[in-house]
Design a protein around this nucleic acid. Structure first.
Lengths: 300, 300
DNA sequence: CCTTAATATAACATAATGTTATAATAAACA
DNA sequence: TGTTTATTATAACATTATGTTATATTAAGG
């Protein structure tokens, strides 16, 4: 076939002669015989249509045309090496891009620590993190727009693969609160408190309300909010007390918030989701495994 | 040989599949058979160590690893095409870089017009123009640091190839000067004028002085300067009159300077020089030819 | 169930790259 | 000035990469 474009091996040979000063040295550098280098360069010169070298004292000196092309040729060879290097990194899950959708609370609580740790040892990995409502997260999974999702109240979907995780919850209250004296908090202990809680149609709230009802304790609703992190903020400000997931509570301990185990055990179920029809990248699989592992200390 | 780097043809095949949506279409695009594309990609996948494609409905969808590499691969293919294109331009003398050394006067008189015209039709050609003294220009030629030199008072050198050009000279004087009434100016006409002239050890000055001596006319030296352009500036300012090369005079006509032919004919010899030991680029040869041609209207 | 589309495999052909042997050219050295 | 060394070029052959035709396999569409 007649193709006017030079071949990579030819450019490698050319650069080797430029860098090493002679055909003989270039051959040594490339681990091929000297006539092979001569052949490659003869073919290349004929292909390009100009003399690659001048002849000086029986040796080859790069022509000015060759020097003019040199930066581009070097760039090509560097890019090829980079493709090779990045491929190796991809195989070793040290390169790639992940797109993660999560509940807003996760973007500012547990997830950043896991991401930072993961990226620390993987300079060639990058991520997009998009917080949004569970409805939107589901849309993105179905539309294959994200590699991984962290959501709750997920009832399942044929196009979405999910892993449910039961996160331990705790009762949170402001520092120097009388509840500090208790080792475990029950609905009875919360009888005279203002309660900050999640949306009343959420699975978690329904369970919590039942726990109070079973204990014959009045539930004093003060603030309804979607995110555990918002609840924690309000608790810090003395608006009331709340039952939230342990990994949200952990973030606020140094901000004037205290917590104790809550009884009955009320796990908050989150779902780790992935589009069934989208083949995950190797690095995505590794991150998802790491993320699941990171939840271990918070399991119910 | 075991080489982990991918081959160019393989990357071309990969990009063709990404761009065209199927192996079958890629084969058509590359003008090869479909099994050839399959072979290239199978080899590439084995080489890189990860799956290039996912399989969806019996068709191939680029994997996320492939998508991650895509910008680099595209860049390599673009660069290869660019090398091919630039090579073509080099062959057609439409690309390259020239380094020109010239007498200071040339950098602001005749040369810029020639350069501008030359570059107008050659967007991929670039130049370095360095004005300096004849001694330095000679050094640069001997040291092969410049492709081309425009100098004078060049007595020859074994390492320097030169072409001598006799440039017509003219007598220049300010506008509204009595000499305006003459068609030709002789030393006799300049008897009562202040003369601005070149260095007294220059060939040109020696010749001019002899012309005055032969005519038995006193030479009123007022200013000695190296450059014809500086002489022209002084003439414009009424400091005196001068005999200078026609191509310098031409530049000052619109600045209040007038000129007339001088007799006896006193050509100013310039030398177009080039390092003998440095092979000129194709574009350099073309420029030198153009430059010589551009002097035709100014030949003695 | 048949047809069409797309991909994979096998066997063979061609082109590109590589080897060994040796010739040609030029510089260095005695 | 002749010999030795260094460097490049050429020839003949070998290996690898790429390409072909023929055909099998898989999946979707009608």
């Amino acid at each position: 076939m007649r193709d006017v474009k030079p071949r990579l091996r030819q450019l490698e040979a050319l650069m080797a002669v430029i860098d090493n000063g002679s055909l003989t040295n270039a051959a040594s550098e490339l681990n091929i015989s000297q006539p092979a280098v001569t052949r490659l360069l003869t073919d290349l010169g004929n292909n390009l249509g100009f003399s690659l070298f001048d002849r000086r004292n029986g040796r080859l000196i790069p022509s000015q045309e060759t020097r003019f092309l040199q930066p581009d040729i070097r760039r090509v060879l560097e890019l090829m090496q980079q493709i090779s290097d990045v491929s190796q990194e991809l195989t070793e899950r040290r390169a790639g891009h992940l797109r993660i959708a999560c509940l807003p609370g996760f973007a500012t609580s547990h997830l950043p620590n896991v991401v930072a740790t993961f990226l620390e040892k993987r300079p060639s990995v990058s991520m997009t993190i998009e917080p949004d409502r569970p409805e939107r997260i589901l849309e993105w999974m179905i539309g294959e727009q994200y590699d991984f999702g962290i959501t709750d109240d997920f009832a399942g979907h044929p196009a979405v693969e999910s892993t449910d995780v039961q996160i331990r919850t705790v009762c949170v209250f402001p520092q120097n609160h009388p509840l500090e004296t208790l080792d475990v908090i029950t609905p009875a202990d919360m009888a005279n408190e203002n309660i900050i809680h999640t949306k009343q149609n959420s699975e978690f709230f329904i369970g919590l309300a039942k726990a109070f009802q079973s204990a014959h304790v009045e539930f004093h609703s003060r603030v309804e909010t979607r995110q555990f992190t918002a609840a924690c903020e309000l608790v810090c400000k003395g608006t009331g007390i709340a039952v939230v997931s342990a990994l949200d509570a952990a973030k606020y301990v140094n901000q004037g918030l205290q917590f104790r185990p809550f009884r009955p055990i009320m796990p908050h179920q989150i779902s780790l989701v992935r589009p069934i029809t989208k083949q995950p990248s190797m690095v995505a699989l590794e991150f998802i495994a790491d993320f699941e592992q990171s939840l271990t200390p918070f399991l119910a």
